[in-house]
């Protein structure tokens, strides 16, 4: 009765393609909705949806630890922080009534995005990778176990891990101090 995503049965091979397509469609829809959202809260929620679908994309790439870490951190922490910041920094009624999204903003962003996409796309297309054939089936066994990540964190990447811990502590203390409200 166990359904193990790591075995390569035909069902999972078909689903792995849909497993990449569905999050991609969700991501594109979320980004489109984010661009034309009517207020800030909806924009933040659609970005959270975009992060969630990115996590699902990581899952379809076979990195399940990273996918759940992404959902936990981005959706659970970053998106939540954005929502809280929106709550704590409500604009006055005058700003609210002003045009939330003017066409200039959207057009500028769109233009920058499209031009950069074309430039980067041309670089990708000109590289030798563009015409290589890759196996696109789900890996039959994920050779990377969690133990390998753990061993690397304690072994090879120990210094980076400790530095990251110090960085996160510093960020926590710094954010707490910055956001502390001194008014009674």
């Amino acid at each position: 009765m166990t359904a193990n995503p790591e075995t390569g049965s035909p069902l999972w091979q078909i689903l792995s393609n849909w497993g990449s397509l569905i999050p991609t469609i969700l991501l594109l829809l979320a980004l489109a909705g984010f661009s034309i959202a009517r207020n800030l809260i909806r924009a933040a929620l659609l970005i959270a949806l975009a992060f969630l679908s990115l996590g699902l994309l990581f899952l379809s790439l076979g990195a399940e630890f990273l996918a759940f870490a992404q959902i936990l951190v981005y959706v659970g922490a970053v998106a939540m922080l954005m929502l809280f910041t929106i709550l704590l920094s409500r604009p006055s009624e005058r700003e609210h009534a002003a045009a939330w999204l003017d066409g200039g903003e959207l057009l500028r962003g769109f233009l920058i995005g499209i031009i950069l996409t074309f430039i980067l796309g041309m670089f990708i297309a000109a590289s030798p990778l563009a015409s290589q054939k890759f196996q696109n089936d789900f890996p039959a066994q994920t050779s990377l176990s969690l133990q390998a990540i753990g061993q690397a964190l304690i072994g090879d990447a120990a210094a980076s891990f400790l530095a990251l811990a110090v960085l996160l502590t510093a960020a926590l203390i710094g954010a707490a101090i910055l956001a502390f409200d001194e008014r009674p």
Binding site: V73, L81, I149, L168, L172, G174, L178, A179
Partner: peptide, 27 residues
Amino acid sequence: PSAPLFALFVIAIAASEAALGLALIIH
């Protein structure tokens, strides 16, 4: 494990930078 490890570090750093950035915005 280098690639997932690097991605994990990027996620952690992104989270801390988001926290600090949002605290700055509130300030």
